[in-house]
């Protein structure tokens, strides 16, 4: 039993089976990568975990509790946060507000408290803002707090998205291609950041990633999907020599090399 268990999950779209009978156990405080060629069903799997898709079969168990039938907002509140492959920030809100939205489940005020300006509410807000600033500092964005999200450069947007997810105080964080479109230096920094998430904050990371260098460098476990099925699982070293994985990638002449370039 891990912290997140995906048990025999199948998801179909009409006749197409996007995820077929996938079982993955994610160990607490690990970095677990899910790789596979385009269209292998990785993002669909994320959507099944977060409740945006209902799995047709199988179960998703989080901390021993089945969650696959819960609505997505409830799953988020239980402690599963995510980022998106194509960044989805609240473009017209400031960086600070983006993070504060992430903190939503941990705050309590609603309609009446702010209207009356109760002290409890004012203190809560002050604390939240302070915390949000700390989170922004954690991803090195504290001087961008009052910039609109849409005006931040690409790399900072990626980091802000992580900060927003962290604001949810998740136990498990799902990162969908966090280094896509980054230059080598930014990629390096993001890898550091991901490690810090695990080591300093104790968060379990599930990572979808195309950059094999990243995957092989930071993963504790790697699961490989192909055509919606899990074809291999193991440590990075094991995956690199797995013949089925090599076939899945090279058999289709994928450009991505499997061996990490030093």
């Amino acid at each position: 039993m891990g912290i997140l268990d995906i048990v025999h999950v199948t998801k179909r779209f009409g006749g197409l089976v996007a995820v077929r009978d996938v079982t993955i156990h994610v160990e607490p405080q690990s970095i677990h990568s899910i790789i596979g060629p385009n269209g292998a069903g990785k993002t669909t799997l994320f959507n099944c975990i977060t409740g945006f898709y209902r799995a047709d079969e199988g179960e998703v168990i989080f901390n021993g509790e089945p969650i696959h039938f819960l609505p997505p907002d409830e799953i988020a509140r239980m402690g599963i946060a995510r980022t998106y492959q194509n960044i989805r920030l609240f473009a017209n809100l400031t960086a600070m507000e983006n993070v504060l939205v992430g903190m939503h489940p941990h705050l309590t005020s609603w309609l009446i408290e702010p209207i009356l300006g109760l002290r409890r509410y004012r203190e809560e807000e002050a604390r939240a803002r302070e915390e949000a600033l700390q989170l922004l500092a954690f991803v090195d964005l504290e001087d961008r707090a009052y910039f609109l999200a849409k005006n931040l450069p690409y790399g900072e947007q990626r980091r802000l998205e992580i900060a927003r997810a962290l604001a949810l105080k998740p136990k498990v964080l799902l990162l969908d291609e966090p280094t896509a479109g980054m230059n080598p230096r930014e990629t390096e920094e993001t890898m550091d950041l991901i490690r810090r998430l695990r080591d300093e904050l104790g968060i379990t990371i599930v990572l979808i990633e195309h950059d094999m260098k990243v995957v092989m460098n930071i993963s504790d476990v790697v699961s490989v999907l192909d055509y919606g099925e899990k074809i291999a699982e193991g440590t990075p070293a094991e995956i690199q020599i797995n013949p089925r994985v090599i076939e899945a990638y090279l058999g289709r002449g994928a450009a991505t090399g499997l061996t990490p370039a030093a």
């Binding site: 907002d73 995510r82 609240f90």
Partner: peptide
């Protein structure tokens, strides 16, 4: 701004 993401942040939409 983005209803899906708001939900994924735990907001009861």
């Amino acid at each position: 701004e983005d209803e899906d993401v708001a939900i994924a942040m735990g907001i009861d939409h």
